[in-house]
Design a protein around this nucleic acid. Structure first.
Lengths: 215, 215
DNA sequence: TACTTGTCCTGTCATGCCGTCAGCTTACCG
DNA sequence: CGGTAAGCTGACGGCATGACAGGACAAGTA
């Protein structure tokens, strides 16, 4: 857990080195949004960064290694998604706005990081534990909070006993992630953002509380 | 729209040729389930099929082209998913079993084709229209049927007017697809299939009818 | 200024996959 | 048996990969 940035061959990276490294990550990031993951080549990233392939291999074992790095950075930022759920109440009007803001925050985060999230999703689905862990890191914060919310409501007798809080929270979060990563698809299919959001919020509210929201 | 199978250079494939072609597709399919999409090489597929790379290029322009072929086959089979929704009623006990069977059928289909569906999902998310179209072909049958169901219920005044049928159906289907493609993930996270299914069914029922099911 | 030290970058090379072509083999038909 | 089209492959130029050794550069030291 040291902050020490190291090259592949063990040297400690200085100021200049870190700048180069970061530039490579930025260029890779950009590349991922403009061309299919399968076609991203080290040589292209290096060229774009105004350096040579050899330099790339000084800092990363391969493309995947660099992608993991970017994903890690994003996951750290993504931890703030918890704030969308934590300390929220799900009753009455504030319940509805909680649902709305959760949906909003989620879609926004996904839109901002869609390229890298696609790759993380693929890696996780393919069974790669490193990607899976990162995906967890992002989703867990939200999922856990939601799980707690459901448990509380259950304890108060406001939600049926036979609902599994973890399964429900997980399903809702998976839905949000899926819809978020196919936002463009929905638009192309004739569903506008404006009508998508309230429907998602409705589903979230229904899932958590089991009741229609009072708006 | 002819059933004529043609090679890249325009010849018509005979019995032997079609067999080879199919063998290549099968090997590619197998390869996709055992190694990351990014690492699937033409030469490996060819070796596995006991033939040479040059032969592969006789039948497919590249790996992606072959993947599209497999996906197309799967999409054709997937059209039968419509039957999970079409002609179903969403009231009373039969409403609950409709939800249950929809979830069941969906998860099962996804489990059977998870490798290829992963790649289709990635392609669609990356904005490739061909993959997007295939994804549509599979999901649309279900989505459209669900959309109709919601519209009918709305017409009868059983569902709020401000629900967008298309957005609701799309979100639910996206959820099912997402959960299906991360089934292993859920298990690793401690959520069992057995508790996942009823929760998904509950969400589907809530989304379509706006009411808790009577079991 | 000249020298030293450690960081940083690149030219180069062996290796391996890509994608194409010419040409050989096989099957079918009159 | 000879012709024709299908089917397959060896071989090749081209390009990405990944490793290494050595040169460029900045910063500190005498």
């Amino acid at each position: 857990m040291t902050g020490q940035v190291r090259t592949v061959d063990g040297r400690v990276a200085g100021r200049r080195g870190q700048a180069t490294r970061q530039k490579l990550l930025d260029c890779l990031s950009e590349m991922l949004s403009s061309s299919p993951y399968r076609d991203v080549k080290v040589i292209d990233v290096a060229r774009k960064a105004g350096t040579s392939p050899a330099t790339f291999y000084q800092y990363f074992p391969d493309v995947e290694g660099a992608v993991l790095e970017i994903a890690e950075q994003m996951a750290t930022e993504g931890a703030q998604l918890t704030s969308l759920v934590e300390g929220r109440t799900w009753v009455g009007k504030s319940g509805w706005s909680a649902a709305e803001e959760l949906v909003d925050g989620f879609l926004e985060f996904w839109r901002r990081n869609d390229a890298i999230l696609r790759v993380v999703d693929l890696g996780a689905a393919e069974g790669d534990k490193r990607f899976y862990k990162i995906r967890m890191k992002i989703l867990n914060s939200v999922t856990n909070s939601l799980t707690e919310s459901v448990k509380e409501l259950q304890a108060k007798g406001k939600v049926d006993k036979d609902v599994s809080p973890a399964a429900m929270a997980g399903s809702l979060v998976a839905m949000l992630a899926a819809v978020a990563s196919h936002q463009k698809g929905f638009q192309a299919w004739g569903v506008k953002q404006a009508e998508l959001k309230p429907n998602l919020a409705l589903l979230v509210h229904l899932g958590i509380t089991g009741k229609k929201p009072t708006r």
